[in-house]
């Protein structure tokens, strides 16, 4: 009788282990060609509360259950920002009806010239679902540093007076708010859409 119980318990354990092994095997085998760096397990990502167009506080924690794509830029940015935002917009189009599972947030690192409403209006030019937020320099320094992003004001000649140098990476947070992926600047819209599809499936 005892032997039978041992055998049954052993068989159950073996079955569980086998199922776990199969799950891991499938997970690794299903890893597609990715275009950014996948972080598995995900890294902890900081919550934040920056100001949105309606004056409310917004951060990635407000979109749990969706993927959150974070990009840091500013509206007078001549090249990196419009190009990245355009690529993100194209990736959203490519996602079709799955786009509602992704929330893109543009964080302006030029709060002096980019009030929240202006950032938001700028972000929505690239896709109606995008939102734009910003904050004080102190708030932005804390947020950007925690996401491995730098920004610095650089004086330039001309009407603008200054520009803002900043990191060009785009970050993707998973449904639970963990940092899952980092895209380099040159990631294509197709690559972004493909990676987002994979992250949505997980």
């Amino acid at each position: 009788m005892i032997r039978t119980r041992f055998l049954l318990a052993g068989a159950a354990l073996a079955l569980l282990a086998a199922l776990a092994a199969v799950a891991v095997g499938i997970r690794l085998a299903a890893l597609p060609e990715l275009h950014g760096t996948l972080l598995d397990p995900p890294l902890p990502a900081a919550e934040f509360a920056l100001t949105s167009a309606d004056g409310g506080a917004v951060g990635p924690q407000d979109f749990r259950g969706r993927l959150v794509v974070l990009f840091f830029g500013f509206t007078n940015c001549p090249d990196v920002c419009p190009l990245t935002m355009h690529r993100l917009g194209s990736a959203m189009e490519e996602l079709g009806d799955r786009a509602d599972q992704v929330q893109v947030i543009l964080v302006s690192v030029d709060p002096e010239r980019d009030p929240p409403a202006k950032v938001d209006e700028y972000a929505k030019r690239f896709h109606p679902s995008f939102i734009g937020v910003t904050g004080s320099d102190d708030e932005l320094r804390t947020v950007t540093s925690s996401y491995g992003i730098y920004y610095a004001r650089t004086e330039v000649e001309g009407a603008l007076g200054y520009t803002v140098d900043h990191s060009a990476s785009t970050l993707v947070l998973d449904r639970n708010g963990g940092l899952r992926m980092i895209w380099p600047f040159d990631t294509t819209p197709e690559g972004m859409a493909s990676d987002l599809r994979y992250l949505i499936r997980r």
Binding site: G148, Y150, Y151, A152
Partner: peptide, 10 residues
């Protein structure tokens, strides 16, 4: 291990 994002800085 991948511990955390290193800080951004200038």
């Amino acid at each position: 291990p991948r511990m955390a994002l290193a800080p951004g800085f200038v």
